[in-house]
Design a protein around this nucleic acid. Sequence first.
DNA 1: CACGACACCTGCCGGC
DNA 2: TGCCGGCAGGTGTCGT
Length: 275
Amino acid sequence: MPELPEVETIVRDLRPNVVGRRVEQVDLIRESVVRFPDPASFRSRLRARRIASVRRRGKFIHIGLGGGEDLVVHLGMTGTLTLRPLGDPLLLHTHLRLELDDGGQELRYRDPRRFGRVVLGHVGELRAAGALPRLGPEPLAAGFGQSSVTQELRSSRRAVKSVLLDQGVVAGCGNIYADEACFLARVRPDRPASGLSREQARRLVLALPLVMRQALRRRGTSFSDYRDGFGSRGGALEALLVYGRASLPCVRCGSTLQQTRVGGRTTVYCVGCQH
DNA sequence: CACGACACCTGCCGGC
DNA sequence: TGCCGGCAGGTGTCGT
């Protein structure tokens, strides 16, 4: 569910509210959501720690605990990480609660489908344990246009969209914004990436930060599950140009938008103006 | 290496 | 009303 703009919205919501606070109580309700380390170590390594930072890398949320240790959360398809008043009634599928000092609030991790996960440790330790994958460049970073992505695209025989969804190529791109970026760049998502002209590859690399910044301004796209750091919906759904609009007219050329499957993922594009 | 199929889960929606 | 299939913003593994 949450792609880069949704995760970034959550990080920005949480940061000013949790940095500097201490974790008073760890309530791990469903132990299986913690993939590293074991539940007992997880609880003891987290209790009484002070939160030093909240950052995003791709779709991962890193909550810095000082001493180089991070609590890392991935939201999968349906995960939410929200700040609630202490003792607020629990929603079903809440798996982890962190009671914070000073302010009467707790941080809650909820995930109905449980495709998400939580890990705790030094980044090096987590990578060695296979709990964190290597990620490609950040679309919102200053040098993204000059990054490896253009070359990666033009040297892969996979479908354009499959390359965009590869987190090792572009960190944080998911199904919605891959379709939106292809539309903006006027590139068919199902064509082999290696056949792209320099111009088309350049347009794609330009489009990714554009669609993501626009969604970020609207605080993310809420279909059903996505919620920001305070539990509210995002407003970017209304701004989507192709995703979720199959069989409606293209806003650019009026052709009927087509729905297909690329790499097993639902894909919407315009046959009239994406080539 | 690359790709499809499938697995992991729950909820929701539409059709019968 | 109720059951059933299909589908969903993600990713990891396994077999071809």
